[in-house]
Amino acid sequence: MSDKVQSSAWFSDLISGLVFYGVILPAGLVRRLIKALRPRAPSDTFWIARQPDKDANSMTRQY
């Protein structure tokens, strides 16, 4: 049982590592590069405007 748990944890770590260093890191670096190339214009506010949600079905979604 304990071997099973250990091997499952090892497998989970491997997959997490592959996703983190293989996908998240490169995508994050690209995103940061794009942000650096398009710097935010100085503003006197940090508010992010939001359009009122007119979709009556939005509560059926999990996103």
């Binding site: 770590d13 997490s16 983190f20 890191l25 994050g28 996103y63």
Partner: peptide
């Protein structure tokens, strides 16, 4: 709350932080 929106925030955060953050990502 909306779980998938929360998950996307989590991914966003790691995108901004990588290579830091692996211990909690794992």
């Amino acid at each position: 709350e909306k779980p998938l929106l929360k998950f996307s925030r989590l991914l966003d955060t790691y995108l901004d932080a990588a290579p830091q953050g692996f211990p909690t990502f794992r």
